[in-house]
Computed example of a mutant assay.
Amino acid sequence: MLNIKGIHHVAIITDRYEESKRFYTEILGFDIIAETYREARNSYKLDLAIAGKYQIELFSFPDFRERGSYPESKGLRHLAFEVSDVAAGIEWLRSQGVANVQDVRIDELTGKKFTFFDDPNGQPLELYEV
């Protein structure tokens, strides 16, 4: 048995590093742990903390493939963040010019509110009310 204790981090690749850095820090409010430029890869790695217990690794790479989302591809579908008020989250995201912020939806299995929106690279993200 592996005895997995949790999720350590989620890695996201961007070709719009500065815009993505601003999005994840200024709009979503994540804290910067460390920012490293890796000259050999011509790539940045930005470590971000969410509420002091979760971590996102944001990578910039000069060579990449676009995400195959429509129709959906197999693999990681989206990343969901817990919030206490989805409607307030939608209002904030829209006021910041975030792309494709959907209206409030209701999870038919749990009855909880949620919404989807895109990061600057078209990565689908979700707010889920708890």
Rank of each mutant, 00 (worst) to 15 (best):
M1A: 10
L2I: 02
I4K: 07
I4L: 14
I4H: 08
K5A: 05
I7S: 04
H9L: 01
H9E: 02
Y17V: 08
S20V: 13
F23D: 04
F23G: 02
Y24P: 02
Y24R: 06
L28W: 12
L28R: 12
F30Q: 02
D31L: 03
I33W: 05
I33K: 09
A34P: 01
A34W: 00
E35Q: 11
Y37A: 02
Y37P: 01
Y37Q: 00
A40H: 01
A40L: 00
R41I: 00
N42V: 00
N42W: 00
S43K: 02
Y44D: 00
K45V: 02
D47K: 07
D47E: 11
D47R: 11
L48M: 06
L48K: 03
I50Y: 13
G52M: 01
Y54E: 04
Q55R: 11
E57A: 02
E57L: 09
F59W: 14
S60W: 00
P62K: 03
D63V: 10
D63I: 06
F64H: 09
F64Y: 15
R65W: 05
S69R: 15
S73D: 14
K74Y: 07
G75C: 12
L76G: 04
H78C: 07
F81N: 07
V86Q: 03
A87H: 08
A87M: 08
I90F: 07
I90S: 10
L93T: 12
R94Y: 09
G97H: 05
V98C: 04
A99K: 15
N100W: 12
V104I: 15
E108L: 11
G111F: 11
K112M: 09
K113D: 05
F114V: 04
T115N: 15
N121E: 15
N121C: 14
G122M: 05
G122W: 09
Q123P: 01
P124V: 15
L127K: 13
L127V: 11
E129D: 09
V130N: 07
